[in-house]
């Protein structure tokens, strides 16, 4: 089952394309990390998925419907925007009341429990909360809405390291408990490594790589060996990045089969290595790679 499917999706602001030719399939039941440098189009993609923006080109389908097309669709998708907006004049308790009034599937127990656990004073005005507390409140509303798909735009950016870890743990719990799918964006891979089992790398408004983390890590290898010409690599090894010294060549490849060449020393990659390799090589204008099982 897919929770998000995009075909030829593009969004143009005035003259600039923030996202173009985006083709994407996100399977249900995953926590997908959306990574990419600043300005890569992460927020645009999430806003399109939430129905906050309408596409300039192509189509996007979320939970089987057009984003923002009606109450049924809105109930299925939760979205917390990057600046985690809350009403400054309303108290924390009033925000929960707002959620309860506006959402048929509202989980009041979950919301109250989270507010308690976070130590937020229900009588406090949201305008007086710290940035991190505001983010937590917005995220609480997003979770308690009980959507099928929760879209989070840089959800942990405003949180301190401890709150970050706790929030991500909460998210994991909600995913396990309610079968929720999540797409969260970040430009820090370390945030995502802990929770994501699916990854999308967006560079220069294009999807560069997408797949399950495990498969990505299995199929990407670092090969180190004596200096050589990369054209001699077998056809099933696709170069992601390469560096040479006088004597040595280090190459990061996506290999469809085990590497058998004995001249290479084969090493595993961390997720961060992998993402950085894709992000730092925007020049290679190849089509988006899809990792297949």
């Amino acid at each position: 089952m897919t929770v998000l499917r995009a075909q030829g999706l593009g969004k143009k602001y005035k003259r600039r394309w923030a996202l173009s030719g985006c083709a994407l399939d996100i399977p249900a039941g995953h926590v997908s990390g959306l990574v990419g440098p600043n300005g890569a189009g992460k927020s645009t993609l999430l806003n399109l998925a939430a129905g906050m923006l309408t596409p300039t080109a192509g189509t996007i389908e979320v939970c089987g419907g057009v984003p923002g097309s009606g109450p049924g669709q809105l109930a299925k998708v939760g979205f917390v925007a990057q600046n985690t907006p809350v009403y400054p004049g309303l108290t924390v308790a009033e925000h929960l009341r707002l959620g309860a009034h506006l959402n048929p599937r509202w989980d009041d127990a979950l919301a109250r429990d989270r507010v308690d656990r976070l130590g937020l004073d229900p009588a406090q005005h949201a305008g007086k909360l710290s940035g991190g507390q505001r983010a937590q409140l917005a995220l609480t509303i997003g979770l308690a809405k009980r959507p099928e798909l929760l879209l989070l735009d840089e959800p942990v950016a405003a949180l301190d390291p401890l709150a970050r870890r706790e929030f991500l743990a909460d998210l994991m719990e909600a995913v396990a408990e309610h079968g929720l799918s999540v797409v969260l964006s970040s430009h820090l891979v370390s945030d995502l490594e802990r929770v994501c089992d699916h990854l999308i790398v967006l560079v220069d408004s294009q999807v560069r790589v997408v797949g399950e983390v495990e498969d990505l890590l299995d199929s990407h290898l670092r090969l180190t060996g004596p200096r050589r010409d990369l054209d001699t690599l077998p056809a099933d090894q696709h170069v992601v990045s390469a560096s040479h010294t006088d004597r040595q060549t280090t190459v990061l490849v996506r290999a469809e089969a085990p590497v058998l060449d004995p001249t290479w020393t084969v090493g595993r990659l961390t997720l961060e290595d992998l993402v950085l390799a894709y992000m730092s090589n925007p020049t290679a204008a190849r089509p988006a790679l899809e990792v297949l099982r």
């Binding site: 939430a50 923002g68 109450p71 809105l74 109930a75 907006p85 707002l98 506006l102 959402n103 997003g142």
Partner: peptide, 17 residues
């Protein structure tokens, strides 16, 4: 101006309503 529309538009409430 304050961006709260993106909070309320993402509850189960259409913009028109």
């Amino acid at each position: 101006e304050t961006g709260t529309h993106s909070l309320v538009w993402n509850q189960t409430v259409t913009r028109r309503r």
